[in-house]
Simulated scan of single mutants.
Amino acid sequence: MHPDEHPIDDALVRRLLADRFPDWAGLPLRRLASGGTVNAMYRLGADLVVRLPLVKGGAGDVLLERHWLPRLAPLLPADVPQPLGAGEPAAGYPWPWSVYRWLDGANPEPGELAKPEQLAVDLAQFVTAMRAIDLPDAPAAYRGGPLAEQDAATRDAVAQLRRLPEEGVDCDAALAVWEAALRAPAWDGPPVWLHADLSPGNLLVADGRLRAVIDFGCTGTGDPACDLFPAWNLLPPPAREVFRTALGTDAATWLRGRGRTLSQALIALPYYRRTNPVMARHARHVIREVLAEG
């Protein structure tokens, strides 16, 4: 997926485990199929999972999670990853990595939700709980700053998609939505705690309910619009309104949230269209949902 991606295979993970956690080294190990773009995931035995950055940029996320997840977990209404082992560079692997407690559940798929309105309520409760957190020395969330910071990358992505007519993206309509978001009043309140990457791949559901939220590598404080992503990347229109109502989202924040969600999808589609089918499929879904909303 990335030009600077570090090769990771079963043998490397076995060597890392043997060096750092010999008591776990003999457990069954299986790489998990994933649409993730930053980490490789390995199921380790029945109760553990190993998470290793694929690129240098993911190394900081590992340290961020180690510090903040134990502090955030008691304050949230859904399970979050529990770091159990702090792996360090070794065996030719250059970055920190972690072992976590395994969390049960499945990634939700747009259009296949068993209880979309209930899931919307669950997601709103999680976002509300994140926003209510008051922990000192909070980091700035990735992509949590002013919307204009994403302008150049978003316009570049639209230009790339104009050269890919087979994708069928209405680029003029996409730019209109983006520019409407840029015109919306900026967030003028205090920064709030965010997950900042509430994509379907970072959610686990069971029996239609939110079970867990994973991958806190983008977490920190910023514009509350950053946690509105599920409105368009997962929820159908009726549940989208349930989500919005449950959060009490004002018009300006909703516009910024829609713009942020669209921007992420526009950037992802040309980058991952040949290398990550899951990410590309979800990006197409978001673009369709946002443009259909008008």
Rank of each mutant, 00 (worst) to 15 (best):
P3G: 08
A280C: 01
A176L: 10
E65D: 09
D137M: 04
F216E: 02
D215R: 03
E289A: 15
N202E: 06
H6A: 14
D23H: 14
A148D: 13
S34H: 07
W95V: 02
L135P: 03
W254Y: 13
G144H: 11
A11L: 13
W97G: 06
A114E: 15
P110H: 07
G208S: 08
F216L: 05
L203Y: 04
I287P: 05
L17Q: 11
I287E: 08
D122F: 12
G248T: 06
G201M: 00
G222S: 03
P146L: 12
D197K: 09
W232V: 03
V158N: 07
L198F: 05
P3D: 12
V55Q: 13
P74D: 07
W193Y: 11
R20M: 00
D170I: 13
R209A: 15
L69W: 05
P200K: 07
G145W: 09
L103E: 02
L63C: 06
W254F: 12
R30Q: 14
H6Q: 14
A268Y: 06
D151Q: 14
V38H: 11
A114T: 13
I287L: 10
E65R: 05
Q264I: 14
A132H: 12
D134S: 13
L29P: 04
L123I: 04
L266C: 04
C226D: 11
V127S: 11
F216D: 06
L161Y: 03
D9L: 07
R51Q: 06
W68G: 08
W97T: 02
A176Y: 00
G58P: 02
R131L: 04
P3N: 09
R101W: 02
A280E: 02
A196G: 01
D227V: 02
D134T: 13
G58C: 04
A18T: 14
S98H: 10
F126G: 10
Y272E: 01
P224L: 05
G26V: 03
D250I: 00
G92Q: 08
G222A: 09
D134C: 10
G45Y: 03
R284S: 12
M279D: 02
E5P: 03
V213T: 10
G294N: 14
L194M: 07
A225I: 01
G257F: 11
L12T: 10
P136A: 13
V290Q: 09
L175F: 00
L198T: 05
S34E: 10
D134H: 12
Y42D: 07
P190W: 09
D172K: 13
T249Q: 01
L135H: 04
R30F: 00
P110C: 07
W187C: 00
L72I: 06
Y100A: 04
R284T: 05
A173K: 11
A78S: 12
R288N: 12
A73L: 05
L135A: 13
L119M: 08
